[in-house]
Amino acid sequence: MSNYSIKDLEQLSGIKAHTLRIWEQRYNLLNPKRTDTNIRYYDDDDLKLILNVAMLNNHGIKISKIAAMSSKDISEEIIRLTDQSVDQNDQIQALTICMIEMDEDRFEKVLSTNIIKLGFEDTVLKVVYPFLTRIGILWLTGAISPAQEHFISNLIRQKLIVAIDGETGNSFGKTFMLFLPEGELHEISLLFSSYLIKKHGHKVIYLGQNTPNADLISVYKMQKPNYLLTVITSAPAGDKVQEYVDMLGREFKESEIFVTGLQALDQSLAIPSNIRLLTYAKEIKNVLVKMEEQTV
């Protein structure tokens, strides 16, 4: 069980610490514990409650009414609001609650409802990606555990793999080779790119996580793909990114290479002529649409 400060609750829920203290005193909404050195902290149950309370309050339900509701009533009202709402922030909040509670069934329902309303592609772009950004912030601040992050990331990964399997591509499209550098494990953006590429009728050679340079070069020589795509999120890092980008430009001169990810975009890199930086997830779709326009 994790421990949270009131500042953690503020960051996770969006409710100011001052307001949380008032709710605590006036409505006995939270029950802070104390360490042996008398420092106040909150536990997982407090966090789950305040996330739910924040969502209900944002929908105009007065805090006095929420404080009088049972846990069951709060849960049922949250489910009702999530099912009916088309607001992106509501859906991100619902997914955050699923992550904190590690509730796979509820996560599945929230995501499936969004896919029905928005379609798979827009669900990823408008709900999942902003949610992942939020996870990144929570991870950096220590507000969520590795287990919670891995739990939700793997569920999203499974959804993407199922969607990819539903797209067949065709023999007349271009060939894309997708891979992550050695040591890189953040696969969701690469999987989504694979989905988009196959949806637009192209072939994907998917090498996935942690691809050694020697294997990458070997497969390239065998398959001769038209395009390469990689995401550099955490590895390589620092000055090694320039070295890696230079290697890609040098070894794969006959193909156009798309590179994205925080490590690539946060640096002033000297970009080889056959490499193009993509600044956000949707940009790969724009590339595919332009390719289609050029063949018409």
Rank of each mutant, 00 (worst) to 15 (best):
S5A: 12
I6R: 05
L9V: 00
L12S: 01
K16P: 02
W23Y: 07
R26V: 08
R26A: 10
N28L: 09
N28R: 13
N31H: 15
N38K: 10
D43I: 09
D44Q: 08
D44E: 13
D46L: 05
L47P: 03
K48Q: 07
I50M: 04
I50Y: 03
N52T: 04
N52H: 09
V53G: 00
V53A: 00
V53R: 01
M55L: 14
L56I: 06
I63T: 01
S64T: 11
I66L: 07
S70N: 11
D73R: 14
S75K: 07
I78G: 00
L81E: 02
D83A: 14
D83K: 14
Q84K: 15
D87L: 07
Q91N: 07
Q93L: 02
C98I: 01
I100P: 00
E108H: 15
E108I: 12
S112F: 12
T113W: 01
N114Q: 11
G119T: 08
F120A: 02
L125M: 14
V127H: 04
T133M: 13
R134W: 12
R134T: 15
R134Q: 15
L138Q: 11
P146F: 00
A147S: 13
A147V: 12
A147M: 13
Q148C: 02
E149S: 05
F151E: 09
S153L: 11
R157D: 07
R157H: 11
Q158I: 13
I161V: 12
V162L: 13
V162R: 13
I164D: 07
D165N: 15
G169A: 12
G169W: 08
N170V: 08
S171F: 12
G173E: 06
G173R: 04
G173K: 06
T175F: 04
M177Y: 04
L178G: 05
L180T: 05
P181R: 05
E182C: 10
G183A: 07
E187T: 04
E187M: 08
I188S: 01
S189C: 09
S194T: 01
K199H: 12
H200C: 09
H200G: 09
H202Y: 08
A214P: 05
S218P: 01
Y220Q: 02
Q223N: 04
Q223F: 07
K224V: 11
P225E: 02
L229T: 02
T233W: 02
P236V: 08
G238V: 00
K240H: 01
V241C: 10
Q242A: 02
M247W: 10
G249R: 12
S255D: 00
S255W: 01
V259L: 08
A264G: 06
L265S: 11
D266H: 14
Q267H: 13
S268L: 14
S268C: 13
L269F: 02
S273K: 11
I275L: 04
I275T: 05
Y280L: 13
E283C: 11
N286C: 12
V287Q: 06
V287I: 15
E292T: 06
Q294K: 12
Q294Y: 03
